[in-house]
């Protein structure tokens, strides 16, 4: 299981490379969106390692909040208010 955690951290490092380098703002937004999904996968693997189900609650909340954050960032890129 530790190997899987290591590989997921490698994925997250590649995402962070795109967040740091990304020439434009949308590139960084994409990388942050993907980062949220990867963290959900990491919570799932922690569920297997520890056998405790509250990690899955963290994963679900993280997925919800990351989706809302992505929509907010996309609306900001579009240059409009949030009520449209």
């Amino acid at each position: 299981m530790n190997v899987f955690i290591g590989l997921l951290i490698l994925c997250i490092v590649m995402c962070l490379y795109r967040v740091g380098k990304g020439p434009t703002a949308p590139d960084r937004t994409v990388a942050i969106d993907i980062l949220g999904t990867l963290v959900v996968g990491m919570c799932a693997i922690f569920t297997i390692i520890t056998g405790k189900d509250f990690y899955m609650n963290i994963g679900i909340s993280w997925a919800l909040l990351s989706f809302i954050g992505t929509i907010a960032l996309a609306k900001y890129l579009e240059g409009k208010g949030f009520d449209e």
């Binding site: 703002a25 949308p26 937004t29 929509i71 960032l73």
Partner: peptide, 15 residues
């Protein structure tokens, strides 16, 4: 849905 929103936002912001 998130991917769709980002693609549309990026295109409208002139990328």
């Amino acid at each position: 849905t998130g991917a769709h929103a980002i693609a549309r936002g990026a295109h409208r912001s002139g990328i």
